[in-house]
Simulated scan of single mutants.
Amino acid sequence: MELAEIALLAAAAVHLGFQVTVTAVAYPALARVPPDQWGPAHRAHTRAITPVVVVVYGSLVVTGGWVLWSGPRVGAWVALAATAVALLATALAAAPAHGRLAGGRDPLVWRRLLRADLVRTLAAAVAVAALMTVR
């Protein structure tokens, strides 16, 4: 495995850990917030998680670019595609859902967010698994 691929594997593993934590801890905690406390709780969640998102997704972009520049092999291509799916799910579904949820809890938007989160978590797992096949 090339150094760029090792760096992407490390970033992808951190991403997977982050996504599993959001899925298993952060979103269930938000779901238990009473409706009258939703606004402050959602704002607190957003303030706390935004720096982590920037670091995790930034590392994926940087290491993914390095792998692209280095000439990825098949497993790395699959990981890059899976990572792109996670980034797109965030940009096109999760981030807009959080924007709408900032104005109040909406069950339809919440379900949309959870679906996007599932896509991101599965994509992160695929990325790690694909990189583990690179020799």
Rank of each mutant, 00 (worst) to 15 (best):
H45K: 05
R32M: 15
A13P: 03
A44G: 12
E2F: 02
Y27G: 00
W77C: 03
A123D: 11
R112H: 13
V74I: 06
G99L: 08
L9A: 12
M132T: 15
H42T: 00
A116Q: 05
A93T: 09
Q19D: 12
A81F: 13
V61L: 11
G17S: 05
A48T: 12
V74S: 03
G64P: 00
P35A: 12
A127N: 06
M1T: 05
Q19L: 04
V134C: 09
L87E: 00
M1Y: 07
I49W: 02
L92A: 15
A81Q: 02
L16R: 08
E5M: 14
E2I: 05
A10T: 15
L118F: 08
A79Y: 04
L118A: 15
T46H: 11
L80M: 03
R115F: 12
G103I: 13
P96F: 02
L131E: 14
W69D: 05
L113S: 05
Q37D: 12
L16P: 02
D36E: 11
H98T: 01
G58S: 03
A76D: 03
L88C: 09
L68H: 00
L113A: 10
L80D: 01
H45D: 04
V52I: 10
A95P: 10
I49D: 03
R111F: 06
L60V: 04
A26S: 13
L16K: 05
L118S: 13
H45Q: 11
W110F: 07
D106T: 02
P72G: 10
L114H: 07
L8S: 02
T21C: 15
T50G: 05
A127Y: 07
Y27K: 02
E2V: 12
A12N: 09
V67Q: 00
P96C: 10
A31P: 07
W110A: 10
H45R: 07
I6F: 13
P96K: 07
A89R: 08
G64Y: 06
A127D: 12
V78W: 02
V53W: 00
R43P: 01
V134W: 13
G65K: 02
P28V: 07
V53K: 01
D36T: 03
V53G: 02
G58Y: 04
A123V: 09
G17K: 01
A82S: 00
R135A: 14
V85Q: 03
V61C: 00
P107D: 14
W77K: 00
R115M: 08
V109Q: 01
G17E: 11
A116E: 07
A7W: 10
Q19Y: 11
H15I: 01
L9I: 13
A13Q: 10
S70M: 08
S59M: 10
